[in-house]
Design a binder for these strands. Structure first.
Length: 337
DNA sequence: GAAGCGTGGAT
DNA sequence: TATCCAAGCTT
């Protein structure tokens, strides 16, 4: 694997060339958090933007929460951004401005789970650590033809990954396994003819690489309905901040009614106004449900009993840091009648 | 252990 | 279009 990696490693902004000294732990950590459940191509522009604005722990730790959440807008899984800031502040305040170098200490920081702690320990600090992400799970499951379904097979796969992890260059080994999974040993139509492990791969020998890893069936995704409320006055629109926990936690948003299983009415408007239902809807797929949102608008004249929020210039909505579902609503309002 | 948590790419 | 799923973590 290391030989293959030396010749085939992807060139990425947060990565050092194979065999060279480890890159800046700050950049490794930032990239690992952004890459959680997120593809490389999606992460790159965010990583460039973040490292340009906040090049180290000290600068990131000093950011206002709202600025960080706004910069993260569109990347998803917003708890990552909240944990990122909490970890940066812990590092700046309690760890002398540096990440701890061992896996167990890393594991105690916000946003560091089993994967991220192992990856940072191995990639940024040269420690031997067993790094298991979705790519490694797939490669190992195929290499050893693991027949037990995920997620129950995770401990077994972790042990197998441990058994093939070298003492030296464990970080490069981990990145090699992930590159292999991302480019060769793909979920569908793996390119086994290019794989350096093909000779030793049990799934390949059985001619059924795509059958691994075995996974439990997923539940169907329910549909929920809601309404987004666009309150406009003097060229501005009312934005609120969502609660810190839960869906889109801490993000700017339009006021919304309750999201439920049946189509809503204007009855759950956030305040009394002359609401008009537009002839447009927003459809958006979240991890565990699909949302179909109606759009209601009102022009506000005199005083209203509106919730706390910001009257944001409509011409400058791009800078509000709205999550994608609400950015879609802005577009749909523009198209509607 | 299971459920909650975003968004977009690939097929 | 439908489905899978991506360098997972938290509760």
């Amino acid at each position: 694997m290391l030989r293959w990696y030396d010749a085939n490693a992807r060139v990425l902004p947060w990565r050092a060339p194979p065999g060279s000294p480890p890159p800046d732990p700050y950049r490794v950590w930032l990239s690992e958090v952004m890459l959680q459940q997120t593809q490389v191509a999606t992460v790159i522009p965010y990583f460039e933007k973040f490292t340009a604005r906040w090049p180290d722990f000290a600068s990131l730790a000093a950011v206002e929460d709202a600025d960080l959440m706004s910069a993260w807008a569109g990347l998803g899984y917003y708890a990552r951004a909240r944990n990122l800031l909490a970890a940066a502040r812990a590092v700046a305040g309690e760890h002398g401005g540096r990440l701890p170098a061992d896996e167990a200490a890393l594991r105690t920081l916000p946003g560091f789970g089993a994967y991220t702690a192992a990856a940072v320990a191995a990639i940024a600090f040269g420690q031997r650590a067993v790094v298991v992400d979705g790519n490694v799970e797939r490669v190992v499951a195929r290499l050893f033809a693991v027949a037990d379904p995920l997620p129950g097979a995770k401990p077994r796969i972790r042990d197998l990954a441990d058994s093939i992890t070298p003492d030296a260059r464990a970080g490069d080994f981990a990145q090699a396994m992930m590159d292999l999974g991302a480019t060769i040993c793909t979920p569908r139509s793996p390119r086994c003819l290019l794989c350096p492990l093909a000779d030793r791969c049990e799934a390949r020998a059985a001619a059924t690489p795509e059958a691994f890893p075995v996974k439990a069936k997923k539940k169907a995704r329910p549909v929920r309905y809601g309404t987004f409320f666009w309150a406009e006055r003097d060229g501005r629109v009312l934005l609120v901040r969502r609660p810190d926990t839960g869906l889109l936690g801490g993000m700017r948003a339009f006021p919304t009614g309750v999201w439920s299983e049946s189509p809503p009415a204007l009855a759950d408007a956030p305040f009394a106004a002359d609401w008009t239902l537009r002839n447009a809807t927003v459809r958006h797929v979240f991890t565990h449900f699909e949302l179909i949102a109606a759009l209601a608008t009102a022009t506000i004249g005199g005083h209203i009993d509106a919730p706390d929020g910001e009257w944001w210039p409509i011409a400058d909505l791009d800078s509000a840091g709205l999550p994608t579902v609400f950015a879609k609503a802005v577009k749909a309002i523009g198209r509607s009648e």
